[in-house]
Nucleic acid binder design. Structure first.
Length: 489
RNA sequence: GCGGGAGUAGCUCAGCUGGUAGAGCGAUAGCCUUCCAAGCUAUAGGUCGCGCGUUCGAACCGCGUCUCCCGCUCCA
C-alpha cells in the first residue's frame, strides 16, 4: 500500500465518488433536510449539466446518426391495461418469504419450483400445478402452507422456520380522479418501453417509417424496489434511454448482434476503457425475450449492468394487439406480407451511465515532491460531456485584465457553457475547475493586452499553451463537440 | 426487509470517568499576488440525526426511531 513514492493515480471508491458528487454539486440525496428519502436522489447544478449532455449524446447518436430511428416522448401514466398486456401486473410482483434462522430472503415460488425439480416428474409436475393455481388466486397463505407441507427447508440454515409469504409489487400505483371512490388505479410506468409499443403504428404511419426502423425515448420510470442501494445505481425513480428496433420476423438475431456491437462501441467512444466493459449473457430469459445480454461496467462495487440489449420477439406488439383488439401489423411491400414486427431493444439506465461516467472520471493523483506533495483530485470527464466547457480567468483583477477576460467570456458563452472567475489566486481557480471536470481554463495575462493571445491550460496534463484569441472559440468548439465522439461510431 | 458499521460546522475530525461546543480545510467580503488550493484581515455557519427517559445538569448514559455505508436479494 505504500504507493506514495511513485506518482499514484487512483480511482475512487464508491464512498469517495458519492462524497465528491455531493460536495461539488453533482448529486444530492432527495429531501435531505428531512433526512432524505431512501433510494431517491436529486441532480445538482453540475450533475444536471453532465446528465443532460449524456442524454443529448445518446439522443443524437440514435436519432441523428440513424436515419431510420425517430424519437417520441410518451407519458408516465398509461392505460392500466398496458401493464396487463406487458405482463407487469402478473409478473412484476414476487411472493417473498424469509427464513427466521438464516435471515435469508427467498422468492417463495422459486423455492417451491426448486423443490419440485428434485421430486419424481409426476410429483414435481403436480406440485408446480398446485403452485400455479395458488399464485393465480393470490393465495399467499396457501403458498406458505405448501412450503410447510412439503417440508421445504432453507438451504442455508437447514430449518423450516419461515415467516409469512408476502407479495412485493414493484409497480407504484396512484389514483386518477380527485374522488377516491370513483377513481381507477393507474400505475407509474415501470419501464418506458411500453410507451413506444403502444405508439408503434402512430409513429410508423406519421413518420412514414419502413421496417427495419427504431423508436427512441428518454424518460423516467419507477420501481418500488425491495432493496434499492448503491447510490444512484438502483433508485426507485430512474431514467431510461431506450430504443426499440422493429424488424422482420426471422431477422431479429442479425439485428441483435448488430446492436450488441454498436452499443458496446458507443461506450468505448465515450472514453470508457475496454477492460472495464464486458458482455454478460442472460441465462434465464424474461418472459418476452429470446435472447438478452447486458453491457456491464466495472464499478467500484464490481461489474454491473449499465445497458441491456434484448430480443423481445413479437411478444409486446402481439400482446397489445390481443388486449386492445387493434391490429399491430406492418405491411412489408418488399415481400408483400403483413406481419407483427419483431423487436430488438437497447435500454440504458441514464443514471447508471452517469454513475459510470463519474466513477470512471474520478481521479486522485499525488503531485509534487516531499513536503510539497499533495493530493490532486479531478474529474477526467470527456470534454464533450463535461458540465462546464471552459473557465476564463484574468490572472489578476486589475489593469484591465478582467475587462479583457469578460469580452472573451461574453463571446464564448453564446456557444458553450463557460464560467468566468476572478476570485482568489489562479492556482485555486484551476483546482476548483479540476474538481468539476472543466477540461480547459483560459488565462488572460498582460501579454494578452499586447498581442491578443491567451493561455489555454489542459485539465489532465495541467500544461498550458498560448493561443490567439481569434482562434480560441474554434478550438474550444472543436475539442468539446459531440463530433469528437460521434465520429468514432 | 435481515445482519454489521456510522451519524458533532459545507468537508475531515477533536471534545477526558456527564458540567450546555472547538480546530484545520472550505465558503463569503476585502487587501496582497501575472500562473497551479500561498499570505493577511474580517464575517457567516452547529437546538451535537431525531424523540423519550435517567440526572441538579446529557454531544457523552439507557430505550426507541430515522438516514447513510457494507453484505444478502433483485434489476435499467
Amino acid at each position: 500500500m505504500n504507493a506514495t513514492q511513485e506518482k499514484a493515480t487512483t480511482e475512487g471508491s464508491l464512498k469517495q465518488v458519492i462524497a465528491h458528487a455531493k460536495e461539488y454539486g453533482f448529486v444530492f440525496p432527495s429531501s435531505e433536510i428531512y433526512d432524505g428519502l431512501s433510494a431517491v436522489y436529486d441532480y445538482g447544478p453540475f450533475g444536471v449539466e453532465l446528465k443532460n449532455n449524456l442524454k443529448a449524446l445518446w439522443w443524437k447518436t440514435m436519432t441523428q446518426l440513424n436515419d431510420n430511428i425517430v424519437g417520441i416522448d410518451a407519458s408516465i401514466f398509461m392505460h392500466p391495461t398496458t401493464w396487463k398486456a406487458s405482463g407487469h401486473v402478473d409478473g412484476f410482483s414476487d411472493p417473498m418469504i424469509d427464513n427466521k434462522d438464516s435471515k435469508k430472503r427467498y422468492r417463495a415460488d422459486v423455492l417451491i419450483e426448486e423443490h419440485a425439480a428434485k421430486l419424481t416428474p409426476e410429483a414435481g409436475l403436480a406440485l408446480e400445478k398446485e403452485l400455479a393455481r395458488l399464485l393465480e388466486a393470490d393465495d399467499l397463505s396457501g403458498v406458505l402452507a405448501l412450503i410447510v407441507r412439503e417440508n421445504i427447508k432453507c438451504p442455508v440454515s437447514g430449518t423450516a422456520n419461515w415467516t409469512d409469504v408476502r407479495q412485493f409489487n414493484l409497480m407504484f400505483s396512484t389514483q386518477v380522479g380527485s374522488v377516491a371512490e370513483d377513481s381507477s388505479t393507474i400505475y407509474l410506468r415501470p419501464e418506458t418501453a411500453q410507451g413506444i409499443f403502444v405508439n408503434f403504428l402512430n409513429v410508423q404511419k406519421s413518420a412514414r417509417m419502413k421496417v427495419p426502423f427504431g423508436i427512441a425515448q428518454i424518460g423516467k420510470a419507477f420501481r418500488n424496489e425491495i432493496v434499492a442501494r448503491q447510490f444512484i445505481f438502483r433508485m426507485r425513480e430512474f431514467e431510461q434511454m431506450e430504443m426499440q428496433f422493429f424488424v422482420r420476423p426471422g431477422e431479429e438475431m442479425t439485428w441483435y448482434q448488430h446492436w450488441k456491437a454498436t452499443r458496446l462501441n458507443w461506450h468505448k467512444a465515450l472514453g470508457i476503457p475496454e477492460n472495464k466493459l464486458r458482455f454478460h449473457d442472460h441465462e434465464k430469459l424474461a418472459h418476452y425475450a429470446n435472447a438478452a445480454v447486458d453491457i456491464e461496467f466495472e464499478f467500484p462495487f464490481g461489474f454491473k449492468e449499465i445497458e441491456g440489449i434484448h430480443s423481445r420477439t413479437d411478444f409486446d406488439l402481439k400482446s397489445h394487439q390481443e388486449y386492445s383488439g387493434k391490429k399491430q401489423q406492418y405491411f412489408d411491400s418488399e415481400i408483400n406480407q403483413n406481419y407483427v414486427p419483431y423487436v430488438v431493444e437497447t435500454s440504458v439506465g441514464a443514471d447508471r451511465l452517469f454513475l459510470m461516467t463519474l466513477c470512471n472520471a474520478y481521479t486522485e493523483e499525488l503531485v509534487g515532491e516531499g513536503e510539497q506533495q499533495k493530493l490532486r483530485t479531478y474529474l477526467k470527464l470527456n470534454p464533450a460531456v463535461a458540465p462546464i466547457k471552459a473557465a476564463i480567468f484574468p490572472v489578476t483583477k486589475k489593469d484591465g485584465l478582467p475587462e479583457k477576460a469578460r469580452l472573451i467570456f461574453d463571446d464564448l458563452r453564446l456557444d458553450m457553457k463557460v464560467i468566468y472567475e476572478e476570485k482568489d489566486n489562479i492556482g485555486k481557480r484551476y483546482a476548483r475547475q479540476d474538481l468539476i471536470g472543466t477540461p480547459f481554463c483560459i488565462a488572460v495575462d498582460y501579454q494578452s493586452l499586447e498581442d491578443d493571445t491567451v493561455t489555454i491550460r489542459y485539465r489532465d496534463s495541467t500544461l498550458q499553451e498560448r493561443i490567439a484569441i481569434k482562434d480560441l472559440k474554434a478550438k474550444l468548439m472543436a475539442e468539446t463537440s459531440f463530433n469528437t465522439i460521434l465520429s468514432k461510431l
